[in-house]
Design a binder for these strands. Sequence first.
DNA 1: AAATATTGCGCAATCG
DNA 2: GCGATTGCGCAATATT
Lengths: 228, 228
Amino acid sequence: MKAHPPILLYELINLPSSENRNVLWATTPILCVSSVIQEWASSYPSQAHTLNLNPVISTQAGSTSQHSQMDMIPYSQSQGIMRGPSEDRVAEQMMGLSYPPYSPSCLGNTSTAGSTNHHQNHADSQQDFSPFLLPSLRAPVTKRSISKDSAEYRLRRERNNIAVRKSRDKARRRILLTQQRAVQLQEENQKLQMRIGQLTQELDTLKHILSQQHLQGVEEGATGELSI
Amino acid sequence: MKAHPPILLYELINLPSSENRNVLWATTPILCVSSVIQEWASSYPSQAHTLNLNPVISTQAGSTSQHSQMDMIPYSQSQGIMRGPSEDRVAEQMMGLSYPPYSPSCLGNTSTAGSTNHHQNHADSQQDFSPFLLPSLRAPVTKRSISKDSAEYRLRRERNNIAVRKSRDKARRRILLTQQRAVQLQEENQKLQMRIGQLTQELDTLKHILSQQHLQGVEEGATGELSI
DNA sequence: AAATATTGCGCAATCG
DNA sequence: GCGATTGCGCAATATT
C-alpha cells in the first residue's frame, strides 16, 4: 500500500523473473546449463522480507556496521526500527557498540534470577511501546495477558514453532538453491567465455583471409588465385 | 571421530576455490564485472559445516526427517525435484512433508508446566541420549550440573551469545554475498550471451562474403570485380 | 481480526 | 577448554 517514509517498507527482490531468464536462454540455445536456476527463482519469497540486516538491536554500530554499507543492494534492510527490543538490551545497543552488543550487566540482573523471567521481560517491555512509541507510562497493563501456560497459549506457541521450522527449512533450501545457482552460473559463464574465445579466433582468421584477398586483388589486379 | 551411521555428519560445500575464479577472469579481459565475487569467496567459512540438517536431538523422529532426505544433496543433483510453478507450497508438498515434525505430545506434557523447565527439558533429555543412544535410564544424572545462575555459567552463556551473534552476522553476510554474486554472474552472463550474438553475426557476415567471393571466383573465372 | 511467515535472540549440543 | 555453528523455542513483527 503506502510505502513511503514511515517505518516499514519492504522491497521486492529483483528476482530474475522467469521472463528474464527465458530471454537469456532464448538468445543462444548453446550452453544452457540452467536448471537449478529455475528452482531458485521459485523458492524465493515473493515479498522478500529477507535479511533484515538492520538488527538495530544487537549489532549495528561497531563491526556489524558493514551491513548497512553494502547491503542495500538486494533487498533493502529497512524495518529495523524497534524490533526485538524485548529486554533492556535495546537501549544499550542503540547506543552503538561493537560485538559484545550485550553488556553483561543487562543480562546479569535479569537472567541471574533464573530462566523464567525470560518471557516476562519480553512481554512487559514490549507492551508499553507497541501503541505509538509514546512514553505512555502504562507499565504492567497486563493487556490481554495471554495467560502463560494456558492451553490456548501452548497451542499458539506450538503452531508458531511449526511455522518457524517450516520457514527455516524454506530459508535453508533457498540458500542452497542460491548457492547452486551461483555455481551453475559460473560454469555457464566459463563456457560462454570459451565460446567467445573460439568465435573471436574464427573471426580473426576470416578477417585475415579477407584482408589477404583484398591485398591480392589490389596488387595483382583481378586474378583471384587464392579463391579456389 | 566416528562419523558413520550414527547421527551427525557434515558435508563440505564445494565452494569454488579462488583459483577457479582467476582462471575465469584470465580468459578474456572483456566483460568482467566481478567484484562482489571476490568478497564472496573470502566470506566463506573454510571449514563449512553447513546446514547441519540433522538435528538428531529435538526433531528427529517426525517430519523433520525431510531434511535428511533431500538436504544432503548440497550441490550435485537435486535439480528436477520441485520446480514449483507458482508458490512455494508446491515445493513443500513435493518434498513430501507435513510440517508438524514435532509430535505435540512430546512438547505438550513438559512445556505445559511453565517456562522454567525449558532448559531442564533440554538438558535432561539430552543427557540420557548423548552417551550412545542407549536407553540407559539414568535420568537426573546431574552430571556436572553446571550450576545455573552461577557466575561462571553466566559468563559462559554471555560469551556464547556473543559468538552466536557474530556467527550469525557472518552467515548473513555470506548469504548476501552469494546472492549478489549470483546476480552479478547473471548479468555478466547476459553480456556474454550478447557478445556471442554479435560475434556470431559478424562471423556469418564474413562467411557470406567469402562464399560470395568464392562463387564469383569460380563463375567469372579470374575477374575479381568485388575485390576492389 | 486471525493465522501464518519471518526474524533476532538466547540456550544447549556439537564441532574443530 | 574455547570459540564457531546449528537447531530449537520464544516473542515481536510482518504479511496474508
